[in-house]
């Protein structure tokens, strides 16, 4: 057993771990952060993507001991309280998920991509996400979700007083909250 100290979603954690334990099992089993998923055993699917010191990594291909001293962000740590990250919002707005199993990894990979390329083309997006497999969506709406998020992040950055402006919807339709508010 080896002792590690890792900051996960802003909280410092110290644990004894087996040297062979993968980071993804440490997060899921030890910390109960089950939002990070395991979809394969060959580092091919991206379901386990988290951020390590701000960069997207596949947590199934990193040992927990390698994360010693690092900062980890998982899907559970992405939103600020009730305020969803624009990428999370984008996936909801544009139906970028179905079963939801690839989604945490897909979102974490997207956040990383948009940090490096805030204005991606469709081709950029498809290329950047090719390490994350989704079997449900055919990627069509994942691309829309990322575009929506990129747009929102750009617009938000421009609005100095912080008031956020939503990009035009892909599915111009009932937004449930508005709908329900009308009824109240």
């Amino acid at each position: 057993m080896t002792q590690i100290t890792v900051t996960v979603n802003g909280t410092s954690q110290t644990h004894e771990v087996e040297p062979r334990q993968l980071l993804v099992y440490y997060l899921r089993d030890k910390l109960g952060l089950t939002g990070t998923h395991i979809g394969c055993d060959t580092s091919s699917c991206g379901a386990c993507t988290v951020h390590m010191d701000g960069m997207a990594v596949k947590s199934c291909s990193i040992l927990a001991v390698q994360a010693d001293g690092c900062e980890i962000t998982t899907i559970e740590g992405l939103a600020q309280g009730d305020q969803l990250h624009p990428v999370q919002e984008g996936f909801k707005e544009c139906h970028g998920l179905q079963c939801g199993f690839c989604t945490p990894g897909m979102i974490m990979a997207t956040v990383d991509m948009l940090q490096n390329n805030p204005d991606p083309t469709e081709e950029d997006i498809r290329h950047a996400l090719e390490g994350n497999i989704c079997r449900c969506t055919g990627y069509h709406n994942i691309v829309r979700s990322v575009q929506w998020a990129a747009e929102k992040m750009k617009t938000s950055a421009k609005v100095l007083d912080g008031a956020s402006v939503s990009p035009s919807p892909v599915y111009a339709s009932v937004n449930l909250n508005q709908q329900q508010q009308q009824q109240l």
Binding site: T34, T36, L78, Q88, K92, G100, P104, Y171, A172, V174
Partner: peptide
């Protein structure tokens, strides 16, 4: 005729995009 035929955003999405889905392997 308020909802049928409308692209209502999915009610189940919130838990999946925040990592709160509960799949069998998540259960201990």
């Amino acid at each position: 005729n308020k909802y049928i035929g409308q692209s209502v955003k999915r009610l189940e999405d919130k838990r999946f995009i925040t990592g709160k889905g509960r799949y069998t392997d998540d259960i201990k």
